[in-house]
Simulated assay, not measured.
Amino acid sequence: MKNNSITIKQQEAHDLPAIYRLIEEAFASVQESNHREQFLVTRLLSSPGFIPELSLTAWIQNELVGYILLTEIEILSDSTSMPSLSLAPLAVRPKFQKQGIGAALIKEAHKRACQLNYETILVLGHKDYYPRFGYKKAENFGITFPFEVQPEFCMVKELTPGAASRAAGQVKYPKAFFEY
């Protein structure tokens, strides 16, 4: 990665203005975006599902270049509720994209989620990007989403082998994901 070393650390309160600017920049030209991801982050950071250890920033020297947030959600079946995580958003400053920063953030987030004993992570994301990190179509495990979206964009990552099959059911997102 071009002689730049990345430092990944837990987000601190004073990082928030820079995180919001980074998210705006990262999603500015994304056609599928509603360009309100920074407001989603504001809501998620104050929601009951917020886990400070899973709100991560990536830095090159003193410049914020990337951000990832994993928030707790549930997968509901007829008989049980299984905690899971939702990956949203992942953002990398445009001039630093395609340099491995997003990959480094995802791998670190996975590692920290495992340390916190989470077994699965769900993402609504690019069908060609996330599979390289072990994400598979959620529908293959009987996991459904509470809204209309093409199945190839709905994916699950097993942090524990077999966990996605045990999680079969409908994803329940906290209301913070939907408020505007």
Rank of each mutant, 00 (worst) to 15 (best):
K2L: 14
N4F: 12
N4V: 11
S5V: 15
T7E: 15
I8S: 11
K9D: 06
Q10R: 09
E12K: 15
H14W: 09
P17E: 01
P17Q: 00
E24Q: 14
E24G: 09
E25I: 10
F27Y: 15
A28E: 10
H35L: 06
F39A: 13
F39V: 12
L40S: 06
L40M: 09
L40N: 07
T42R: 14
T42G: 07
T42N: 12
T42L: 12
L45A: 11
L45E: 15
S47F: 09
P48L: 10
G49H: 01
I51Q: 06
P52E: 03
P52N: 03
E53Y: 00
E53L: 07
L56A: 10
T57P: 05
I60V: 15
I60K: 05
I60D: 10
Q61C: 07
Q61D: 15
Q61M: 06
N62S: 14
N62E: 15
G66F: 08
G66A: 11
Y67T: 09
T71E: 01
E72N: 03
E72W: 00
E74R: 11
E74Q: 14
I75R: 06
S77Y: 05
D78S: 13
T80G: 06
M82W: 04
M82I: 13
S86P: 00
A88G: 08
P89Q: 08
P89Y: 08
L90Y: 11
K95E: 14
K95W: 02
F96Y: 15
K98E: 10
I101H: 09
G102V: 04
I106A: 05
E108I: 05
A109K: 10
A113D: 03
C114Y: 07
N117C: 04
N117Q: 11
T120K: 03
T120H: 03
L122N: 00
L122F: 04
G125V: 05
H126E: 11
Y129F: 15
Y130C: 03
R132P: 00
G134K: 06
G134A: 07
G134V: 05
Y135F: 15
K137S: 08
F145E: 04
P146V: 00
E148P: 02
E148Y: 02
Q150S: 12
P151M: 00
L159Q: 01
L159R: 01
P161N: 06
A164S: 08
S165K: 13
R166A: 15
A168T: 10
A168Y: 09
A168N: 11
G169C: 12
G169D: 11
G169W: 12
V171R: 02
Y173G: 03
A176M: 12
F178H: 08
F178S: 11
